[in-house]
């Protein structure tokens, strides 16, 4: 019970701090890759606190509603993760947030927000099957969708699920909105949709979305960590290397289009996942 409470506490409070820190490190590393100096690592926290202090300005009250639902769902999914719950359930709860974020953006009459939201839906469309396949792979190895079952494994999942891990990394890149998949909204400026589906979220509501994003980052990196959950060193190494590669890829690719994503990532990711599943079946 006490362990559960601690886990909930970690999920609610520590996770966003971690997510913010990751975002800060990300920005710092990106700057280094670009031969820049970069902002301090706690910059994301300044951003969010500043946003909370800004004037409330809305286009539409649905936006406010949706931002709150988003952060609730994002938080809940992380809590469920730390409670070592069912993977599919976590995904579905996470999807509640993602979908409400999109619905909020769609509820405005702003064309950029609308286009961004549509693109975000395409991103959801692309990453969700990949994540589900990864979970199915985990199930085939452990015999359960529960995270608690994964943690009792003695062999890292990565050994039996290498291709699915790559597929999951695709999903991770899409979810983090890193280049080449940063087309629904972008961390960098100079995007054809300005800020995509985040265009109309402003001030405190943008801050909520930002925190929600941190939760999601923690969640998805947590999912990655499951692939080497047998030791702490494994977790840190795997997540570290994965995230480093994400930043690297972000910096060595151009932004591509959603048509390309559907035509390339989908077949590639699904095929890799499928091959991996067949191979598990064959064992």
């Amino acid at each position: 019970m006490i362990k559960g409470i601690i886990m909930v506490f970690i999920g609610v409070f520590v996770a966003p701090l971690l997510g913010g820190l990751i975002a800060g490190v990300d920005r710092r590393l990106t700057a280094w890759f670009q031969s820049r100096y970069g902002p301090p690592v706690w910059q994301p926290f300044f951003d969010v606190i500043k946003l909370f202090g800004k004037e409330r300005m809305v286009v539409n009250r649905w936006l406010v509603f949706c931002a709150h639902v988003y952060i609730t769902a994002a938080m809940l999914s992380v809590v469920l993760f730390f409670l070592q719950s069912d993977l599919l359930l976590i995904l579905f709860v996470q999807a509640v947030g993602a979908i409400f974020l999109v619905i909020g953006a769609l509820s405005t009459t702003s064309p950029y927000s609308q286009l961004g939201a549509n693109r975000e839906l395409i991103q959801i469309l692309t990453y969700e099957p990949l994540i589900i396949l990864a979970f199915v792979g985990i199930y085939l190895v452990t015999g359960s969708f529960r995270i608690s079952e994964i943690l009792v494994q003695t062999k890292p999942l990565l050994v039996s699920l290498p291709l699915l891990y790559i597929a999951l990394c695709y999903a991770l890149t899409i979810k983090l909105r890193k280049s080449p998949f940063d087309f629904s909204t972008s961390h960098h400026a100079h995007q054809e949709l300005v800020k995509g589906f985040l265009t109309e979220y402003s001030g405190p509501y943008l801050a909520l979305v930002e925190i929600g994003h941190w939760y999601e980052v923690v969640l998805i990196l947590g999912l990655c960590s499951l692939f080497w959950a047998t030791s702490w060193i494994g977790i840190i190494a795997l997540v570290g290397v994965t995230y480093f590669c994400e930043i690297l890829i972000d910096n060595v690719t151009a932004r591509l289009t959603w048509r390309w994503m559907l035509g390339y990532v989908w077949p590639m990711g699904l095929a890799m996942g499928f091959v991996n599943l067949i191979w598990l079946h064959g064992r």
Binding site: Y37, P39, Q43, H190, V194, K195
Partner: peptide, 9 residues
């Protein structure tokens, strides 16, 4: 960006 400035557009 050292000062936290981002071009948000």
């Amino acid at each position: 960006e050292r000062f936290g400035i981002i071009n948000v557009g």
